[in-house]
């Protein structure tokens, strides 16, 4: 099926340990979904496996992007097809300036140098949306950034690279309330028929600012329940134990 990211019965392991145990998930273009669940449920692993992290072994199942099987594609090919992941722990790369990095990344994705004026306009708008300082553009990528700044930098890349499908892996953790609002503002600005996002999060907090179309709950390597935004609110109120009991009882 075109216009969706689809995970079919995905099993994946890391250093011999099975972490994903049959994930099924459909993220249609135009929608924002939240992926919740307790620590160790496999949420981040799912994000990395979708992005093509070579440290994880896909044992079974498929990942389809706009109907194309990308399960065996290298990470850069997935990126070129419109996939993006905002990492929970972005790496620091001293010696590469943020602006230069973004320019090169756009060039790698499209095969041509972005027009200078247009590029800086895009940067400027993104910086404003994030309520940030342009000074960040001349800093080295994530070097000396606070945890919150690193997350904002991931969202800056999201805004500039404009992917069609974005996975945000706990982008809300470690953010103060102003930064959280800025990130939410950015994601909401991207919302539209040509954009889809999967928000991996522990908490309802981010979802107060970004209303998800669907909420999925992951436990022990599987999606155990899906529902509307009210599911997130219920989890916020009652925790995960009741759901765990229901699932194991079922």
């Amino acid at each position: 099926m075109a216009n969706r990211l689809e995970i079919q019965d995905l099993w994946a392991s890391h250093e011999g340990k099975m972490i994903l145990k049959g994930v099924n998930l459909v993220l249609p273009l135009g929608e924002v979904h939240a992926l919740m669940g307790p620590n160790g449920a496999g949420k981040s692993t799912l994000g990395k496996v979708i992005a093509g992290d070579p440290n994880y072994q896909v044992e079974k199942g498929r990942i389809l992007l706009d109907g194309e099987d990308i399960t065996d594609l290298p990470p850069e090919e997935r990126a070129k097809r419109g996939l993006f992941i905002a990492f929970q722990y972005p790496v620091e790369i001293p010696g590469v300036q943020v602006a230069n990095f973004l320019r090169l990344a756009l060039k790698e994705r499209t095969g041509e140098e972005p027009p200078i004026h247009e590029f800086y306009q895009r940067l400027k708008e993104a910086i404003e949306l994030l309520d940030w300082d342009e000074e960040v553009l001349s800093r080295y990528l994530n070097e000396g950034f606070s945890g919150g700044e690193k997350k904002k930098n991931e969202v800056l890349q999201l805004l500039v690279l404009k992917p069609r499908y974005a996975i945000l892996d706990e982008t809300d953790s470690g953010l103060d309330i102003d930064a959280l609002k800025a990130v939410a503002r950015a994601v909401n600005a991207l919302r539209g028929p040509e954009f889809a996002a999967l928000l991996i999060t522990h908490y309802q907090r981010l979802l107060n600012y970004i209303e998800p179309d669907r909420v999925h709950v992951m436990m022990d390597g599987r999606i155990v329940r899906s529902g509307g935004p009210e599911l997130a609110k219920e989890l916020e109120k009652r925790g995960y134990d009741w759901l765990r009991a229901e699932v194991s009882g079922a």
Binding site: G52, P54, P74, E76, A79, I85, V91, E108
Partner: peptide, 15 residues
């Protein structure tokens, strides 16, 4: 650094 390499590749950079 393998992690740095993966990070850049998810941004569209070839290996």
């Amino acid at each position: 650094d393998e992690e740095e390499l993966f990070y850049l590749r998810t941004r569209g950079f070839s290996k």
